[in-house]
């Protein structure tokens, strides 16, 4: 009997430890972020209704799988709420994703030609294609071509300090907002727990619209 208790106790403790750890890691990004430290400005990549009082800001990393999974959700949200809210995309390239920066540069370079969101679409939809490349530049150039960018200007902007500074500013702003993981969403300046479904996201947005002055 004592033996059974010892082994059952050991197994229960170990299983609880592993389950607790998984739970803690899954919820960690929701408790660590605070308020949005950098207000939305003209330098931000924004879509939706620019006049709206409801703002959703996402700190994202193009190479992060979770960000890719949230991409269609945010797209659907913008299809539905595009006239009621504004959405801001900010870069938060994580150090372990070595192609997160070049892709962020590519999106910003496309933004210099007014096609930021088209490039975001290409980048997220083809994440598997470039994520492991040693140098994704050629692949990114092919996306630029696909969405009809001036390739020469794209390359020029891709390598420019302006674009690099923009990505770095986003990242630093994210650090100041205590972003620890990607994606992290801020709704009207406050970090929100990553919604687990489209409906949960919708409910959060609806509540923000109702509360907006």
């Amino acid at each position: 009997m004592k033996r059974i208790a010892i082994w059952a106790g050991t197994i229960v403790i170990l299983l609880l430890a592993v389950a607790g750890m998984i739970w803690a890691v899954k919820n960690s990004n929701n408790t660590e972020s605070g308020d949005l430290a950098v207000p939305v400005s003209a330098s931000d990549q924004m879509k939706g209704n620019p006049e709206s009082r409801v703002t959703l800001v996402e700190y994202s990393d193009f190479q992060c799988p979770a960000c890719k999974s949230y991409y269609p959700i945010v797209e659907k949200l913008m299809d539905e709420y595009g006239s009621k809210i504004r959405f801001v995309y900010r870069h938060f390239p994580l150090p372990q994703h070595k192609n997160a920066r070049p892709t962020a540069f590519a999106a910003e370079a496309a933004g210099r030609q007014g096609k930021f969101w088209e490039m975001v679409n290409e980048i997220f939809n083809h994440q598997d294609e470039w994520a492991l490349l040693a140098d994704p530049k050629d692949t990114l150039l092919s996306y630029a071509d696909e969405i009809g960018l001036d390739k020469e200007k794209f390359l020029q902007d891709f390598d420019s300090n302006d674009v690099r500074e923009k990505v770095e500013d986003d990242l630093q702003g994210g650090v100041r907002s205590r972003v620890r993981a990607t994606p992290t969403f801020f709704l009207n300046g406050a970090a929100i727990s990553n919604p687990r479904s489209y409906d949960e996201f919708k409910r959060a947005i609806d509540a923000a619209i109702t509360q907006a002055p």
Partner: peptide, 9 residues
């Protein structure tokens, strides 16, 4: 291990 498999930093 968990952070690695879940993809959290």
């Amino acid at each position: 291990t968990v952070t690695r498999f879940i993809g959290e930093p």
